[in-house]
Simulated assay, not measured.
Amino acid sequence: MMFLYQVVTPAEVEEMFSLPEGSVRRDLRREKFRKSEIRKSGATWLITLREAKRVYSEEYEDRIPVKKDWEWIRNYIDSELNPVIEEEIVQFLDGAPFDRIYDLYQDAIVGASIEDGEEYLSFPEWFYRFRESYEGVE
C-alpha cells in the first residue's frame, strides 16, 4: 500500500503545480484521475503523488527499478494492489485467473530486455497502458 507521505490533497497539488484554486476538484469531477489512485477520506480527497504528477506534469513517467525475479514481481504487484485496481484487473482478465497479471508484467519486463535494477514502468502505469493498448486492438 501507499505510504502516508505519498498522497496529497487537492490544495497541495494546486500549490505544487501553481494551479488556480479549485482546479483539482474540477478535474476530479471530470474524472481525469485513475480511480485506483484517489480516494475520499471524510470531506478530503487524497491523491497519490504519482497520479498528481501524471495528470499535471507533461514530462512525468512513473518508472521504478525492477527485477526479473518471480517472487519480487509478485511481492511488488501485491504491494500496489487496492480494491479498485484489483476490480479493474479482474474485469480486464475477463475470467482468466488473477495470477495471469503477474505473468503479463513479467513478460513485459523480459520483452523489454530490462536487466535487474534497470528502470521500467511501475505496475500501475504498465497496467493502464497495457489495458488501453489491448482495448484499442479489439
Results as ranks from 00 to 15, higher is better:
Ile47Trp: 01
Arg29Trp: 11
Asp99Pro: 00
Tyr60Ile: 06
Phe123Gln: 09
Pro65His: 13
Arg54Leu: 05
Ile85Thr: 12
Glu21Thr: 01
Glu138Val: 03
Thr48Trp: 05
Val90Met: 02
Ile77Thr: 09
Pro124Ala: 06
Tyr105Val: 10
Ile101Gln: 08
Tyr120Val: 02
Arg54Cys: 05
Tyr102Ile: 10
Ile77Phe: 02
Ser41Leu: 14
Ala43Glu: 12
Ser36Lys: 01
Val66Lys: 05
Lys67Ala: 09
Glu119Gln: 13
Val24Thr: 09
Glu119Met: 08
Glu132Phe: 12
Phe123Ile: 13
Glu59Ile: 00
Leu28Asp: 13
Thr48Phe: 03
Glu59Asn: 13
Leu4Gly: 06
Glu61Pro: 01
Tyr105Met: 06
Glu80Phe: 00
Arg34Met: 06
Lys32Tyr: 13
Asp103Gln: 12
Asp103Asn: 09
Glu86Arg: 06
Lys35Cys: 05
Gly136Met: 13
Ala52Ser: 06
Ala43Ile: 14
Ile64Cys: 11
Tyr102Phe: 15
Lys32Trp: 05
Glu59Val: 02
Ile77Leu: 14
Arg26Val: 01
Phe33Gly: 10
Ile64Asn: 07
Leu81Ile: 13
Phe17Pro: 00
Lys67Trp: 14
Tyr128Met: 04
Ser18Cys: 03
Thr9Cys: 09
Ser18Arg: 09
Glu37Asp: 09
Val13Thr: 07
Val84Lys: 12
Glu80Cys: 08
Thr48Tyr: 05
Asp62Pro: 05
Val13Cys: 06
Ile114Cys: 11
Glu87Pro: 00
Pro83Asp: 04
Glu86Cys: 00
Arg63Leu: 15
Leu81Pro: 06
Glu37Asn: 03
Ser133Trp: 10
Val55Pro: 04
Glu119Cys: 04
Pro65Asp: 12
Pro10Gln: 05
Thr44Tyr: 05
Glu88Lys: 05
Glu80Arg: 05
Tyr105Gln: 04
Leu19Tyr: 02
Ile109Glu: 10
Val84His: 04
Ala52Cys: 01
Ala112Arg: 10
Met1Ser: 14
Val137Met: 14
Tyr134Phe: 14
Val84Thr: 15
Arg100Met: 14
Met2Ala: 11
Lys32Val: 15
Phe130His: 15
Asp27Glu: 12
Ile114Pro: 06
Phe130Gly: 10
Glu58Trp: 04
Ala108Tyr: 14
Glu58His: 09
Trp70Met: 11
Leu81Tyr: 04
Asp27Leu: 01
Ile114Thr: 00
Tyr56Pro: 02
Leu81Trp: 05
Leu81Asn: 03
Phe33His: 08
Arg34His: 14
Glu37Ala: 15
Gln6Val: 00
Asp99Leu: 06
Leu19Val: 03
Glu12Thr: 04
Leu4Tyr: 11
Asp94Trp: 12
Gly111Trp: 13
Gly95Glu: 04
Ser18Ile: 05
Phe98His: 07
Arg54Met: 04
Trp126Asp: 04
Glu86Asn: 02
Gly42Asp: 08
Phe33Glu: 04
Asp116Gly: 11
Arg63Tyr: 13
Thr9Glu: 13
Glu132Tyr: 11
Gln6His: 14
Arg30Cys: 03
Gly42Trp: 06
Glu37Ile: 02
Trp45Val: 12
Glu58Thr: 03
Ile73Glu: 11
